[in-house]
């Protein structure tokens, strides 16, 4: 009898534990209704929902729950990606225009309606084909700066690692139809060491490399690698960390083309610099690092992404013509 009592007590404790654990669990579901995606975060813990703050920046939505929780995931539509970081969830929604949110009870839930921008109809195919014919053989790689624990520049409503991931993903999608291939070096919010990135780049034949970062300045920075004086020596030719020395003039030309196109497209200033960046220095292709102004200076909406994509395509065309 005593054994049965003990078992009952253990079972009860286990049940209480499970119910307490479930209390701070959050599940998500999503549905689509004519140009709008509804994302619902549901939990048993009412304070999680009542204390939650929602921030929006370009295609990124941050939900700060202000206390620890257990994110259990759920059914998500394709344009939505969710990452958990500490007490917050970060949502990337492709072509996001604006959001509306509401807190509901029984059960406690946070409902976010994400309104998507209408996709612009592409220009006539024959014009595009004529303009971008030179690009058909190019493989272009985009590197989203930072990632994971290395968050880069942080603002109240954005993190460089997530914003660059979202921007590069959109740029690659827009540029992919015009080139042979647009490749993403980082597809998830994970930390990659410089050496890991170089190993991954080495596994793909590429014709142009763009590393996308943010700056706190109010202008764009465009960097190419500064090669040391001895880089042109015979010994340096066998040094893989200085592989860029064979492409430096082409990188300079590409940087100038990108800069001119961005200046014309965004009406913002551009500063060019050559600094000894180890990632660019080891790349066997024209390589450029582009630092974008932070979101307070330039709003990264669908229009800005279009402009940036058009600038990169224009620069690649100028570059290909040379």
């Amino acid at each position: 009898m005593a054994k049965i009592n003990c078992l009952i007590i253990i079972l009860l404790i286990a049940l209480i534990d499970v119910s307490l654990a479930d209390d701070s669990s959050i599940v998500v579901r999503s549905s689509e209704q004519s140009g709008m995606i509804r994302i619902v975060f549901e939990t048993e813990n009412e304070s999680l929902i009542s204390q939650a703050s929602v921030f929006e920046s370009y295609s990124l939505v941050k939900i700060d729950f202000n206390e620890p929780f257990n994110y259990k995931g759920g059914a998500l539509l394709e344009p939505v990606k969710i990452y958990k970081k500490e007490d917050s969830l970060f949502m990337n929604i492709r072509n996001l225009q604006k959001i509306k949110f509401v807190r509901l009870s029984s059960p406690p839930r946070l409902v976010i309606d994400a309104y998507l921008a209408e996709q612009k109809s592409p220009p006539p195919v024959n014009t595009v084909q004529a303009e971008t014919k030179e690009l058909r053989h190019l493989v272009v790689m985009f590197d989203a700066g930072h990632g994971g624990a290395d968050m880069g520049v942080r603002g109240e409503q954005f993190k460089e690692s997530l914003l660059t991931l979202s921007i590069t993903s959109d740029l690659a999608k827009q540029i992919a139809p015009k080139v042979q291939k647009a490749v993403l070096l980082r597809k998830e919010d994970v930390q990659q060491s410089i050496e890991q990135k170089l190993t991954d780049v080495g596994n793909t034949r590429i014709d142009a490399f763009f590393s996308i970062h943010l700056t706190r300045q109010k202008h764009f920075n465009i960097y190419i690698s500064k090669m040391p004086a001895y880089a042109s020596s015979k010994v340096a030719k066998y040094n893989t960390t200085l592989a860029q020395s064979a492409y430096i003039e082409r990188s300079r030309a590409l940087a100038n083309s990108v800069g001119q196109a961005i200046t014309n497209g965004t009406k913002l200033n551009v500063v060019y610099a050559e600094i000894p960046l180890p990632l660019l220095s080891a790349i066997k292709a024209p390589a450029v690092m582009l630092e974008l102004p932070e979101p307070q200076t330039l709003s990264y909406n669908a229009e800005t992404i279009d402009t940036l994509a058009a600038s990169i395509i224009k620069a690649l065309m100028d570059y290909a013509k040379r």
Partner: peptide
């Protein structure tokens, strides 16, 4: 690395003593 752009794995001289070439501000 310190901020994800430069190596800390190696001593600093080779990185920090190279002259930085800046091409000024290209105004829109």
């Amino acid at each position: 690395s310190l901020g994800g752009h430069f190596y800390l794995r190696y001593p600093l001289r080779r990185t920090v003593t190279q002259e930085i070439v800046t091409d000024g501000l290209h105004k829109a």
